[in-house]
Design a protein around this nucleic acid. Structure first.
Lengths: 145, 145
DNA sequence: TCTTGACATAAAGTTAGGTTTAGGATTTAT
DNA sequence: ATAAATCCTAAACCTAACTTTATGTCAAGA
């Protein structure tokens, strides 16, 4: 069992954030001893799920909905599974988008490296795709549709 | 040359967002004909860079700073290159985190698939890591530190 | 020429996800 | 037993990134 301060250190989250999550219903039925929250293994796993669902793009309200399904029991297994399947697809798509962003960044790093060598962008601005090093060309084409 | 409405369709961004970006200084020296904005190739590439830098985690203010560097000329090539190098590292780290999130989601999909087969979580809650299918075990271990 | 649709601005409003503040209660170390 | 650290709540506050509203200008087709 952990106090809110210990959990705060464990997850590197401000105490105020943990209290905010609780107020929003993300720890349904969390145990309290004379008013003080006691975080058990269940709440620790809940926090891991919160971080995961948040990063997958869900809002706090929707995460609360998920926690309510957990309280409702086995009848909501299909809903819960579907939620994770949906978020899995979202994250896969997001990783693809991030790889495109990464390719744009790679291209720009190369671009400014060249600009620094030349002292200007004259040569670069009249550059056609076929004149780029193959790795850079790949990145450029992937990031410019 | 594009009007704001055409750019809005091209990038699927609300017109109000484009005007907001302009107000924030993200299109320095954009051409105007009797008050009406004319978006050229330069502004189109600027928008690609804006989307890229935003997704890499930069705020509008910092993107404005970058656009100012572009106006200042060749003396800011090193700053610009460094910015892209930094954001490249950020995005690489972010993709790693997203892959961890993905592994958590994979595990949870499997978990609720099993729960649905069994009708309850009894078997799952007493499950040790070594009893999981290897692919799921990998995902579980990667997402639980 | 007149109407319609797209453009413009300034300023106020919105939203999510917290954070801070004010005022107490409780626990822990000395 | 007392002081310091940690806990509590309710409510006000904050910020970024837009969006909406009110009001007005411009351009192209009938």
């Amino acid at each position: 069992m952990y106090t809110i301060g210990q959990v705060s250190e464990l997850f590197r989250l401000p105490i105020s954030t943990l209290r905010y999550y609780d107020k929003e219903g993300l720890f349904p039925n969390i145990e309290r001893v004379s008013g003080i929250r006691k975080f058990g293994e269940k709440e620790i796993e809940t926090l891991r799920v919160i971080e995961c669902l948040k990063k997958s793009g869900l809002e706090i309200k929707q995460i609360k909905q998920f926690m309510q399904w957990c309280v409702e029991g086995s009848s909501t297994y299909p809903k819960r599974k579907e939620l994770f399947e949906t978020q899995k697809k979202q994250v896969e798509a997001e990783i693809e988008r991030m790889n495109k962003v990464l390719d744009m960044l790679k291209f720009k790093c190369w671009y400014y490296g060249e600009a620094m060598k030349n002292g200007n962008e004259d040569k670069l601005s009249s550059l056609s795709v076929s004149d780029m090093p193959s790795e850079i060309r790949e990145a450029y084409l992937n990031s410019h549709d």
